[in-house]
């Protein structure tokens, strides 16, 4: 799968769900682009690098979200 195609699928997929949640498990993203985890990881890492996605971590669990999505960035003045 081409990177741009995957990126569009992820952005569209996460934007669609934005009303109900803004943070997603890695497997949720892999399902959106319908790839096995290891292949999906390469593309998703690239989306982190180019600033499309950002990590969120509780310390024990990691989640992914569209950069700036959700309340926390603004509430904590991180944006």
């Amino acid at each position: 799968m081409e990177y741009e195609e995957a990126k569009k699928m992820i952005v569209d997929g996460l934007t669609k769900k934005m009303k109900t949640k803004t943070k997603f498990y890695f497997n949720d993203l892999a399902k959106i682009i319908d790839l096995k985890p290891r292949e999906a990881k390469k593309l998703i890492n690239q989306m982190i690098q180019d600033g499309t996605l950002e990590y969120w971590s509780s310390g024990s669990t990691s989640l992914y979200g569209l950069k700036g999505a959700g309340k926390q960035a603004h509430a904590e003045h991180e944006d």
Partner: peptide, 19 residues
Amino acid sequence: KHGGIVGVFGYGGGVIGRY
């Protein structure tokens, strides 16, 4: 308030946000 988006560039671990 535990957890957050903070981290170093390219790393998804090693930093745990707390406010």
